[in-house]
Design a protein around this nucleic acid. Structure first.
Length: 913
RNA sequence: GGGCCGGUAGAUCAGUGGUAGAUCGCUUCCUUGGCAUGGAAGAGGCCGCGGGUUCAAUUCCCGCCCGGUCCA
């Protein structure tokens, strides 16, 4: 980025000088002419530890100081957004304050909620999960305090000078000495945007970043810049994007050894107590070690094996062995991590994330399990749910949507599930370890991979358990990257959307007038063909609803003066609707009459409105956390996937069905309006985006029986028109996601009739009233089982009787029985086996639908498996088995006696008699 | 959404293309004054569901259902 971008009047009038850092070579601005380094780590160590650079603040007082400062400076205070980024489909968690306003505000499509504004946005970043607790400064959850100004070509709010001035003034307002502030030039590129940026450094700590977002990847008329090989052009909006780390400011205001002691001291001492480490808090030696640790960690990257280097440095500084230091400090680091993670979970679950094995739910589970593991390491008995509840109380008025009792239930369930996984895992590992120990082999890497991938067992745990069993494990250092490589190999290419190829052709056409919104209950319309290509017709207006939002397209016919064609698919490209024509041609300029298939359209509308009703009913019965995770409408049935932390019980399902049908019976009007996006978000919250996030400044709001969603689908005029909803089944799609399949309107009746038929047919077969069906079926089933046992007993008796009458010949001192007994195969085997047990040989055949033959041999000279093959081939079949017992058969019953004769000869031949 | 592992007695799990097993638990009996225990016998299985291959499938193949798990 160009150097002159940073030549601010403010710097000049305030007596700043631009210098080059002696350590890293970066340019920075300072009021102190004698300063030689930029002030950033690692050029400058953390010198605020033990020597605070601001007046002491807690999280609450610092946040308030910030927000009220910017309010006084003409900014509007905006409520925080949820940590689950439900208004975005590209990220799961809110990672920065600017994320709240992407993509529609930042791209200029939607005006900001206020301009300029100030906000303190809780953010969650899990990329440095490993360093949390160890570095003294990393957190999974932090609040990014920010003030944003959105400058348009016509309205300038403020830009660089004012932003830096506000920064100086704010830092001074909390007691900072602005003579020690440096502004380091650090051009910013990320998320498709770029611009000049300065890091605000004090006491060795980066307390804020001021970004001036002014370039984008989209080509505009202005001069382009080549940044890291990509071209960037001036944006329509120039955005002041600032980020002040609330936790860091509090840390610097207290000068405590670690950020954790500054940010959540009550919880740290609470967890220390729970872990039996309370004595460490007052110990001066510990405080000194932790400070040193944080100072050194601030100067280096501590991920992976670098942690050991950190230990070595700290140990050398206080003159003890790295091992001893490690033993002292590790438990404390774990306490810090537990406190951080439980706070993270309070936000995640409080903002209605449901743990699962998909999407953000997976991230929540990851944090939960990690925390449980750490707690287990420290032998903390206190339930995790208690800790999270405490965190929630400490966070106080941060406005959580989820009820704390639900949070507790979720955590308790997750704790149990994890315990079960561990128990199951331990057994599996023990078994594997024993197997390899018996073979005196090392447990191979492939085995460890399977254990991790398929059973969720951490390799460290495998090593530990295997060691107890006396087995050795092959575990490379880069285990996780091997796993990652393995997964990336099985990536599939994304399917290409075949409609995108029409984009070019379609941009020349005017937007199609959408009659399906204006007159959703009409089925006939007239239109003019504007274009026809590749079997697609474009009309000036249409009643045909294109597929979208989980609602399939309408079908129907188009009639012109010369022909009648069938519409079998409808898609939308941009604002133009394409009708796919099956067999037939239309010409540009044709006047056509369109007719939508009425029953299908009505059925789709009913199912769509029913989806909204059902979602609302589910929320009523199951709780606030219910969010739609996907939906598919159809003409016969539809389904809606919801996030929930346990199985929906049959009773809950019945209650949902009743609640939904009550909403239908009261026949409330369905209200549809187009509203300003920002206002709608503020009015209704982000639960608007159940079915995804539509683009645009304005969004279509559909209100159905208390359910309010952004939705582009066609709907009934009132809930009453839906007629009825019948839940067909509930399915457990993935952990944390339940799928409810249902039918609405006539389809619901069809379904119930179908069920009735099944019941009636079953009842007829048993000649009972259908009310008696369950009892009768149960009786029949038990009787069937009893009789099966009875048959077994009688068979055993039959075998016994047969045995008594069995007469064999003797050849070479061995009893040989060759006989035809018409019993099932199982009994034949039993008879033959008991002859063989006494050292004899038995060839027994029986006739059923096919011929069955069993040969049992109690003499090693006679190989039953070999002989049976020859016997069975005479019967037109095959056979086989073990040398001692073989079975077979074939379709040719008439050959049975011949087969026995040949078999007998073969046996005698084998015995050489 | 993609990948992987699994479903066998009440529980935990072996096992096999050819008569379904172990351990614990359960029932009864014996041992004992009673208990812990010890001994003996016994009950308990649509081998997840449906289809295919085969003379024969719990076992092999395909589809579905259910559970677990890793990744985006």
């Amino acid at each position: 980025m160009l150097e002159e971008e940073y030549q601010l009047d403010y710097f000049k009038t305030q007596g700043f000088v631009r210098k080059i850092c002696k350590a890293c070579g970066s340019a920075f601005w300072t009021r102190d002419p004698s300063r030689e380094v930029c002030g950033d780590a690692p050029c400058e160590p953390y010198n605020f530890i033990g020597d605070p650079i601001f007046r002491p603040h807690t999280l609450d007082t610092m946040r308030e100081a910030y927000l009220s400062f910017f309010e006084k400076q003409g900014h509007t205070r905006v409520e925080r957004y949820p940590v689950a980024a439900r208004w975005r489909d590209d990220i799961y968690l809110t990672i920065a304050s600017i994320a709240d306003f992407q993509p529609f505000v930042t791209s200029g499509i939607v005006p900001p909620p206020a301009n300029p504004l100030t906000i303190s946005q809780p953010c969650i970043r899990l990329n440095d999960l490993d360093s949390v607790g160890k570095s003294g400064r990393h957190l999974t959850t932090f609040e990014m305090m920010a003030h944003h100004a959105f400058n348009t070509p016509t309205e300038e709010i403020y830009w660089k000078d004012r932003t830096v001035e506000l920064c100086d003034q704010f830092l001074a307002s909390i007691g900072g000495d602005i003579n020690n502030v440096t502004y380091k030039e650090n051009p910013w590129i990320g998320g498709g945007n770029a611009g000049p940026s300065v890091e605000v450094l004090m006491g060795g700590l980066e307390v804020a970043t001021l970004v001036f977002m002014s370039l984008g990847r989209q080509k505009t008329e202005g001069q382009g810049y080549d940044l890291k090989g990509e071209m960037y052009y001036p944006m329509k909006l120039r955005i002041v994007d600032t980020g002040y780390g609330l936790e860091r400011l509090v840390w610097a205001s207290k000068g405590s050894p670690t950020i954790y002691d500054a940010v959540f001291p009550e919880m740290v001492s609470h967890v220390m107590n729970a872990a039996g480490l309370d004595h460490m808090l007052d110990n001066k030696e510990y405080t000194k070690i932790l400070s040193l640790n944080a100072k050194f960690a601030g100067l280096m990257d501590i991920s992976g094996t670098n942690l050991f280097n950190l230990r070595k440095k700290v140990a050398a500084a206080i003159d003890i062995s790295p091992d001893k230091l490690d033993k002292m400090i590790t438990p404390v680091e774990k306490v810090y991590a537990i406190v951080d993670h439980s706070r993270c979970l309070a936000f995640m679950l409080g903002d209605c994330i449901v743990p699962s094995n998909v999407r953000e739910g997976y991230l929540a589970r990851l944090v939960i399990r990690r925390t449980l593991r750490l707690m287990n390491d420290l032998k903390i008995e206190e339930p995790l749910a208690d800790m999270i509840e405490q965190q929630t109380k400490i966070l106080g008025d941060r406005k959580f949507e989820q009820d704390i009792s639900v949070v507790r239930e979720i955590i308790d369930r997750e704790t149990e599930k994890y315990a079960a996984t561990l128990e199951r895992g331990t057994r599996i590992v023990q078994k594997v370890a024993k197997t390899y120990k018996a073979k005196s082999q090392r447990v191979p890497l492939a085995e460890i991979m399977t254990l991790y991938d398929s059973h969720g067992i951490q390799p460290e745990m495998v090593k530990e358990i295997a060691a107890k069993e006396g087995a050795v494990v092959d575990l490379p250092d880069n285990f996780y990257s091997i796993v990652a490589d393995m997964h990336s190999e099985s990536k599939h290419e994304k399917e290409e959307d075949n409609t995108t190829k029409y984009t070019g052709r379609v941009t020349a056409l005017p937007p199609t007038k959408k009659l399906y919104y204006e007159q959703p209950s009409d089925i006939e319309f007239e239109a003019v063909v504007l274009d026809f290509f590749d079997e697609y017709a474009v009309l000036d207006q249409t009643l045909f609803y294109p597929e979208g939002g989980g609602q399939p397209a309408d079908t129907g016919t188009l009639v012109s003066a010369e022909s009648m064609v069938r519409v079998d698919g409808v898609v939308k490209v941009g604002e133009v609707v394409l009708h796919h024509i099956a067999g037939g041609v239309l010409r540009r300029g044709d006047r056509v009459k369109g007719m939508v298939d009425e029953e299908r359209r009505w059925s789709l509308m009913r199912h769509h409105t029913a989806t909204h009703i059902l979602l609302h009913a589910t929320k009523e019965v199951l709780g606030a956390h219910i969010h739609q995770a996907g939906a598919q409408k159809g003409a016969e049935s539809s389904r809606v996937d919801i996030r929930h932390f346990k199985h929906i019980t049959p009773d809950e399902l019945r209650r949902i069905e009743i609640a939904a049908n009550r909403m239908i019976m009261t026949s409330q009007p369905v209200e549809i309006s187009v509203e300003d996006r920002t206002k709608a978000e503020q009015k209704y919250g982000f639960s608007l985006y159940q079915g995804g996030v539509p683009p645009g400044r304005e969004i279509r709001i559909v209100k159905v029986a208390g359910d309010i969603e952004a939705c582009a689908g066609t709907h009934c005029r009132s809930t009453g028109e839906v007629g009825s909803i019948k839940i067909i089944r509930v399915e457990h799609i993935q952990d944390g996601i339940e799928r409810i399949e249902f039918a609405a309107g006539i389809a619901a009746i069809y379904y119930m009739q179908h069920m009735e038929q099944i019941v009636t047919a079953s009842a007829d077969t048993l000649s009972v009233q259908f009310e008696n069906l369950p009892a009768t079926v149960t009786r029949f089933f038990t009787e069937w089982k009893d009789q099966k046992k009875e048959v077994e007993r009688m068979s055993a008796r039959l075998v016994e009787l047969e045995m008594r009458t069995l007469v064999g010949e003797t050849a070479g001192g061995i009893t040989i029985v060759v006989k035809r007994i018409d019993l099932p195969q199982k009994e034949l085997s039993a008879i033959a086996s008991s002859v063989a047990e006494k050292g004899g040989i038995a060839l027994i055949a029986g006739a059923g639908e096919t011929a069955r033959v069993v040969l049992a041999s109690g003499d090693s000279r006679v190989n039953a498996g070999e002989i049976i093959g020859q016997v069975c081939s005479l019967l037109g079949g095959k056979g086989g088995g073990k040398p001692t017992l073989a079975q077979g058969g074939g379709p040719e019953l008439g050959q049975l006696d011949l087969a026995l004769k040949v078999g007998r000869e073969r046996i005698l031949a084998s015995l050489h008699v």
